[in-house]
Write a protein that binds this DNA or RNA. Sequence first.
RNA 1: GCAGGGGUUGCAGAGCCUGGCCAAAUGUGACGGGUUUAGGGCCCGUUUCCUUUGUGGAUUCGUGAGUUCGAAUCUCACCCCCUGCACCA
Length: 948
Amino acid sequence: MINYKEIEEKWSKAWEDSHLFESEIDHKNPYFVTAAFPYPNGPQHIGHLRTYGTADALSRYKRMKGYNVLYPMGFHATGTPVLAFAKRIKSGDKGLINDLKVFHIPEEEIAKMTDPVFITRYFTEEIQRGMKKAGYSIDWRRKFVSTDPAFSKMVEWQFGILNKKGYLTVGKHPVGWCPNENNAVGMHDTRRDVEPEIEKVTAIKFRIENSDKYAVCATFRPETVGGVTNLFVNQNSKYVSCKIEGEDGEYILAKAASEDLAYQFKIEVTGEFDGKELLSMRCINPETDASIPIFPGFFVDEKRGTGLVMSVPGHAPFDYVALERLRNEGYDIEGVKPIKVIDVEIGRAAAPSEIKKIPENRDIPAMAYLEAFGADHTAGEDVIELATKLEYKEELRAGRMSIKGYEGMGVGEARKIITEKLKEKGKASDIYMLMNDSQVFCRCGFPVVVKVVDNQWFINYGDKEWKDNAREYLKEMRVLPEKIRNALASAIDWIDLRAVVRSQGLGTKFPFDKEKIIESLSDSTIYMSFYTISNTIKRVDPERLKPEFFDFVFLGKGELESVSRSTGIETSTIQKSRESFEYWYRETSRHSGPDLIFNHLTMYLYNHIAVFEKERWPKQIVVSGVVLSEGEKMSKSLGNITPLIEGLEENGVDPVRAVVIGGADLISDSDYNYEAINGVKDRFEYIFGLCKDSEDYPAGELKNIDFWLYSRMNKKIKAAAAAYEKLELREVFINILYNSVLELKRYTSRGGKNGIVIREYLSSMALMMQPITPYVAEELWHMLGNSSLVSSERWKDADESMISEKIELYEDLIENLIHDMKDIYLLISKKSENNIKNARIIVADDWKRQLNERIRTLKKMPEIMEFVKKDNAANMEKASKYVSSMLKKIESVPVENLTQEEEFEVYMQARNYIQEALGIAVEIEKEGESESPRADRALPLKPSVDIR
RNA sequence: GCAGGGGUUGCAGAGCCUGGCCAAAUGUGACGGGUUUAGGGCCCGUUUCCUUUGUGGAUUCGUGAGUUCGAAUCUCACCCCCUGCACCA
């Protein structure tokens, strides 16, 4: 049994003593690996092993390939998480405290976690401990925290550059807002952690006849404005008339709605009245100029939108139903007829199971959709809702405009055009609505509204030139796995204005508004560069880190002497920092998770482009997937989160690394599960056992099977290198552990027992395994008698001359033959009462082999037979039979060719093995010399078998 | 809705870019057998159906259509699933 704990302690100490991972500038090519900043607001769990472990595997591999690799680590404490953490501890949050107990954090430590500084220190140490245990080849001397004053200086410098380049703008922005606390609310500030879903809708103005007042309706479907036959109001609600800054005329809104909208517009209320009063008015459809009435609508919500609804009975089931109900109540709705503006085939784009029948009459689509669900205007709201959703969906996807001026146009396109037109004429504008199914409440208990914030600072990722640069540069950059390049490209296109400051949290003060703090994703877009100097400036007073310093170090601007004079930093320090940056910041690999593609990674790319010279831009981005636990997503509620250190101690670091890092290819999810870990352990045991046994094996002369193992080994080395380059770690690991074990087993069962061959194979395994399972590799390496550290060894390239397809073919022939023979043996033993005495293997004659060549090239019977005649080597009758049968399955005519003698030799050499496998005596004969009735059936590479 | 990814034989998961050698790797589970035979481990076999002194046939890779001599692989349409959508790290 392998004692993982023992080998982990032994080798991590050896690595530390040899300072193997403390990287200094040297004559070799640099390679700089960074992985996402961990947050020091909790210990890490098994899932974290993925990104950091993958980065470690790459680091270790690149070191083997002769690069001077730097893999540093720092911590991200800016933003609200650490503060919020302290706040929750202070308030005695049971859930959080419980979580911490799961991670075995002592109570007296938890008690101290009301202090953000303590939290940061505690968890940076805790995380570092876990990372060391996990065997990451990290240079810890460069560690820093994003709240360090020196780091802030660099962020200030960065924002100075962004500002100079005109990438910072001030403007308006909609956010979820609590009117009580006067604060922006995100998901974590709401009750039950719901995300306020803010959506833009179109508000359309309907002028009230004979006045300069407008009724305002919010809608998602402005393209149906031509089908508006009336408005709906809630006759029991209060309405107001008001003035809106920047707009002419007066506007009518529900009172409740106007209160919410006041956070989006400056609204001055000029009057208040009951909804009933509106019923006597008429207004003008802005698209058709028709005069339309105002009716009471049962479904109108005074808080939703504007509290007025434009009625499109032709295309909105709710509107249709409301009108029908009014009619049945005796309301005079004559003159209001549904108008069809879109043509659509019902049931075209929906799951047919929902639909009961397809109505024939589609003159009123809204009615038809209700009928499709077997309902009419008496339907309940849930059915109307269903019909509405289906109709909206189908019309958008498959509908064609039928109204004048837009005939045949797709609904999506018409929506854009009509909205644009209305806006141009000043008849529509955008408002924001919360789209959550139920009201969103702030934690303080107040309902959340949408506020349009003024004076909000943004980074303008929409800047055309910047965007073009990013788009272009992405093409040059290496992206692993290749398939996320698309996602990055669309992220680059999509990212636009990004709010960049917050009013609370830890972090760097925003240089252009010192009240605000730089938002924490924006402060960590170029931090990797800081690793290159974090150790050279350790003793420098942060106040001296003026922009001139960073200009010189990162951009090579200015003169050393004058920078030193104006900053007060010694020239040697400045010079060293510059050299370090220049040396390391070239070949870089950035590692992150899939959730960061659309924010961090995109911003990382943009900001490098904005700040640095092109040689310093990202060279490679690597995104690794997430880790499941026993096939399920890890989550607190499932209680299946394994703390990193605990998992590593329980199962051993390398089995866990193998399963988590090598268990799936990059972006795919890997599964941390018991079976897989055991599978890996079993194989490690096998390898170690074989290694021990092989000490007693003699060397001896090399046989076919030895050459076979060499051939497989060298092929494997080639394949592993190719897969490592693309970080296809699953491919690598399956190949070097699982397949190796299969090959070794086959080798020994075929009588392979050459100690030198086995040990050479094992040492190449140790080398190849090292990036993924370093401890086990190290142990194996030393068991094989090496005294160096495998972690500092070079990659051994494949010896092409040892790769032999022919040798491998021999082995395949034998395996196939045994397989076939076993089948036949089974069949016969089932049928025959008699005991089976022996088996004959009959190897096909050479004339068949020569014919195979012809069959593959000529492919036609007459021509082939022509050849047979000329050649005269074979019996014509036998030959024609053979050719015609082979022609039928021309695809399976083997390309490889052996002579009868060669093939015969192969079976002769393996005769003992075959006999053992079958448990009966085996004779090997040549077709021409055999007396077996089945001799004819022998095919090249597919001997006939005669068992009796 | 928009964007990205995906739907493969019990499960997991390759293959798809570069069509044929794919009834489809590998792992795991299940079943049967073996092993100085409790279990485990290890070894062998089976694991879509039919057939069989054999290496054969039929039907399969979300659904439907198409291109092709030939499609899991290419094209189109549709259905379903996962992830993200901003001030939140």
